[in-house]
Design a binder for these strands. Sequence first.
DNA 1: AATAAAATTTAGACTTACCTAAATATGTTC
DNA 2: GAACATATTTAGGTAAGTCTAAATTTTATT
Lengths: 221, 221
Amino acid sequence: MISFTEENYLKAIYKLLNETNGEAVSTNAIAGAMNCKAASVTDMIKKLSVRKYINYEKYQGVTLTDLGQKTALNIVRKHRLWEAFLVTKLNFKWDEVHEIAEQLEHIDSKLLIERLDAFLGYPKFDPHGDPIPDENGKFPESKAVLLSKKYAGDKCVFTGVADHSTLFLNYVDNIGIRIGDPFTIKSIQPFDKTLKLILKNKKQVDVSSRAASNLWVVDNK
Amino acid sequence: MISFTEENYLKAIYKLLNETNGEAVSTNAIAGAMNCKAASVTDMIKKLSVRKYINYEKYQGVTLTDLGQKTALNIVRKHRLWEAFLVTKLNFKWDEVHEIAEQLEHIDSKLLIERLDAFLGYPKFDPHGDPIPDENGKFPESKAVLLSKKYAGDKCVFTGVADHSTLFLNYVDNIGIRIGDPFTIKSIQPFDKTLKLILKNKKQVDVSSRAASNLWVVDNK
DNA sequence: AATAAAATTTAGACTTACCTAAATATGTTC
DNA sequence: GAACATATTTAGGTAAGTCTAAATTTTATT
Ligand SMILES: [Mn+2]
Ligand SMILES: [Mn+2]
Ligand SMILES: [Mn+2]
Ligand SMILES: [Mn+2]
C-alpha cells in the first residue's frame, strides 16, 4: 500500500521532471514543492527508491521508474477527473476546485474512477484545459501553443491556462474569455508585445505579454 | 484540525452509543469496533477527552460531548451522502459503496457537501434506508419499524436494512424487494415466525424471522 | 588546485497512532 | 469480604513523517 504522503511526493517529482525536461530532480526542488525540509526529502526518497518508485543515487537527484511514473499519472488522472466533476456537475468555479481535488485524488478505488470517467462522458481535458491521461497513462493529443507565440491576424481558440493561481484565473474570468472560446488577434503592440484580441462577441480586450504566455490556444480552422 | 483516525474513533463511539442507548461506551467495545487493542483506545480517548470531543473518566467509559456528537454526525452525513451519490449517479450496487464511502467521508469541504447534497436533490435516506442528518445534525422523521414486529394482513413498504453485510444485501436482492416497494404480509408461520409476503408483482416469498428482524418497514396507508 | 559556497545527507529528536507486557482497578463468586 | 476473573490503564517500544543541527559531498570561484 502507498501512503498519501508517498503519492504526493511522486506527484511532485512528476511535475518537477516536466519542468526539467527529464533531468534528474534535486532534493531541494522537491523540498520546495513539498513545502518541507531537504532532510525530510532525503528520508522519503530513500524509501521511494527501496520501493522501486524512483531511481536515486546519493547526491545525484531522482527520476521516476516506470512504476513511479504510472503511479504519478494515475494520481494526476484522478485529480483532473475530480476537478472536472466539481465544475461540470457541482457548479464549482475553476478557481475553487484544486484544494478539494488534492484530497479526492487519494481516494483508492479503480472502479470509482472508471465510473466517474463514464459519468463525465470521458472528458479529455480538465476545467483548466489540462489533459487527462487515460487508465494507461496516455495523454490525449493536443496542438496547444502559448498565445505569446502567435501573430497579429491569427485566429485562435482558447484551450487552457498555464498559470493556475486564483489571481490569474480571476483575471481571465474578467477579460471575458472561457475555455473553448474563439478569438482573433487584431494587433500586437511592438513596444511591449501587448495583444489586442477581438472576442466572439466583438468586444476587444488587451492582453499583456505576461498574460499571453500563460494562455494556451489552438489554431481556429 | 481533526485527523482521519480521530474521526473514525468518534464515529465508532457514536455508533456504540446508539447500541447502548446512551450508556457510556467501554474501552473494550471501542477496541472491538476499531479493530485495535484496548491500550491504543486508552491513548486515543485521553486525547479526545483533552480536545473536548468526549466525556471520559478513568475506568468509566466514554460518552460524546456536544462537539463530539456534532462532529460524528457530520461524518455520518458525509458517509451517507456519498453512498447516495455512488448509487444514484455512478450506478454502484448498494453492497459496493460502503468501503468507498469510508474514504470519502473524510474529505474536508463544507461547500463540497452542500453542493453534493443539492446535486442529489437533498436526499433524506441513503441507499440502505439509513437517515441522512442535515447540516445541523438533525435526522429526518421516520416511522420505520422492524418487519418482525408486524402481523399477518399488514400492508407495508420496505424502507431499509438493519444488517449492512454483503451477504444480507445480496439475500434481499434475490428475494426481489427493493427499497420503496410495497408488499402485504399474507401469513406468519406460527412455529418459526416465517413470514409469507405478497410482493407488488403478485409473487410470494418466504422471509425468515431472522431476516425479518433486519428489514425496516413503514405502514402502507 | 585550493578554497569557499551551496546542496545533500546523517544524526538525533519529536508526534501520532499503534503494539505487548505489566500493573492496577472493578466486578463476580463463593 | 476474600479471591478470582475481567477490564482498563500505564510503561516502554516501534514505524512514518517531520524537524534542527552537524557532517559530508558537490559545485563554483579564485
Ligand atoms: Mn488542480
Ligand atoms: Mn486542473
Ligand atoms: Mn456505509
Ligand atoms: Mn449506508
